[in-house]
Design a protein around this nucleic acid. Structure first.
Lengths: 322, 322
DNA sequence: CTGAAAGCGCTTACAG
DNA sequence: CTGAAAGCGCTTACAG
């Protein structure tokens, strides 16, 4: 179908393309009579005119599109919240957020064929190569984690782990196990988190933690039994999903939570509230993080200084499991 | 930063823009010497050349972008799977998938300002107005559900509900309750699903089901107790998340699942495998649906006939709860 | 108040 | 084998 252009609208309405553009964009500072405005709008609607974003972007020299790159692992409700908030905040500045599920680097390269975004927000850590390619292309890259080389990355994972250990230690636990994830895509995170638990234990003179991967799709019965038999009384889980599998394993093994085994997760997902027992977990300040990301995009676009990362008020939500 | 264009590359490499375009796009059927090809590529890399997607799209008259519009409610791992698969399948045809979290109609209108996609895949039902606007803009619209007016919409929800009732009835249950969602964004679905359970009960000569909204962030203790006291022995939940809240409520109320109360969900989410007891649920053929969506996009683009919706092999996954 | 014209960066027939 | 030129649809200084 031959799509209708602004020239078609101009011709049909008996005005110039200039006028069509002025009216349809509500360009400030131009005076076009109300009658003409209405006539142009009616004509555009009648013809089913849809402006070409490509032409607009080309002419303007910049697009209003912000691409948010997600990690390729399942992200859950916490990230949904972040995305919605980010979309809202940037929409107020006329920026439109579209999300890319990052699977492999090839896909990230193809991205430039399909769109030239104004900015890219990375929720997945980029490799140094990817980050360099984007920077070179003049694309603003903002992220929770700039690259996997970033120190801030390890630090944030460390802090999360420390909060778990703090809570467990305050309850008198000494022998802590780490329920890691078995998802290879999360290896980088799991590793930093384990190191965090290890350091926190050392700092509190607790014995070094043991660790095992825990699949999320079945009760972690065997692992839990092993841990319990070797004197472990508390488990720091990679996230709530893993913690749920630990809870299920304890149930199967006939262990009482938290009496026989305390369990603490990370995320404060909805499921944490209705598990048996309800899950004690670490909640991250997701809205604050989202605001920070939005501020980072805006700062980069406006050329002002990037906001500093907010003091991290991640907090332990105490429920029944630890 | 003045971004580098193909003209800059041509100048620096000492060739014409034509040659740059041929080399960088691997245009078939043109003969450029290997030496020149390499020289152009090196020059482009050295200058950090990134082609303008807007210019390319404008010139070509079409973009390679497919926008997938998600509903504004939390979608979970099932939709993630669908998205990943859709992205893979369409990538093979050079199409790039970006996801938009649909919150309000204003945002959907802004979409055309930011991008002119080749096709839109709707996972959320569009209003008739929205669908018309897109069709008029010459955008291919493909979806599980074209509009909320669509008959197929009610039918699919009906089928899901019928499967739940079938399973419950086969286990000897007669008094069925519907654990609906309290999320207003899902009202349209909840309504169709309730109607489905009602019809299925009628068809099997069971008494009409009772129904109550169940929040997912706390145990549904009171509702469950009420149901049990009025002779209800089985619950058809809106989805697994709601079912989990029912399970938690039963636990609080001191009821045994499934002896005192059977519970069946919808989705077969990971959490369903590790709940107490493991959740019996209805699994949807998500990969088949994803393939169908991809085929729909391709058919529309190629101008061939849209594939018919596959016979829906949604299936009950029997675990411990019903 | 309105219009003619330039130009954003690319691709691709066409001529050499 | 390579280059000059047209044109995609828009916005916006500029002239009237």
């Amino acid at each position: 179908m031959p799509s209708v252009t602004s020239a078609d609208v101009a011709r049909a309405a008996g005005v110039s393309r200039t006028t069509v553009s002025y009216v349809l964009n509500d360009t400030p500072g131009v005076s076009v009579s109300q009658a003409t405005r209405q006539h142009v709008r009616d004509t555009a609607a009648r013809l089913g005119y849809a402006p070409s974003a490509a032409a607009r972007t080309l002419r303007r020299g910049r697009s209003d599109l912000v691409v948010c790159v997600l990690p390729d692992w399942p992200t859950g409700p916490v990230v949904d919240l972040l995305l919605d908030h980010l979309t809202d905040v940037l929409a107020e500045r006329g920026l439109f957020v579209l999300v890319h599920h990052h699977r492999d680097s090839r896909a990230l390269t193809d991205l430039w064929r399909a769109v030239t975004p104004r900015a890219v927000v990375g929720l997945a850590p980029f490799t140094p190569d990817e980050a360099r390619a984007m920077a070179q292309a003049g694309i603003v890259v903002v992220g929770t984690v700039q690259t996997t080389d970033d120190d801030a990355f390890d630090r944030s994972q460390h802090d999360l782990a420390a909060l778990q250990v703090d809570h467990l230690a305050a309850r008198g636990h000494r022998r802590v196990a780490v329920a890691a994830t078995d998802d290879p895509r999360l290896a980088r995170f799991a590793q930093a988190r384990l190191a965090g638990v290890r350091d926190a234990c050392a700092a509190r003179s607790l014995p070094a933690p043991v660790s095992a991967p825990v699949p999320v799709d079945r009760p972690a019965t065997d692992v839990v039994r092993d841990w319990h038999e070797t004197g472990v009384t508390a488990v720091a889980a990679y996230n709530d999903e893993v913690a749920l599998a630990v809870l299920a394993g304890a149930r199967e093994a006939g262990l009482d939570v938290p009496a026989d085994l305390a369990v603490i997760g990370v995320d404060d997902s909805p499921a944490a509230r209705v598990s048996a027992p309800p899950l004690t977990t670490v909640a991250q300040p997701i809205l604050a993080q989202s605001d920070h990301l939005a501020a980072g995009v805006l700062a980069a676009i406006d050329g002002t200084a990037a906001p500093s990362w907010p003091a991290d008020p991640a907090v332990v939500v105490v429920r029944g499991s630890a």
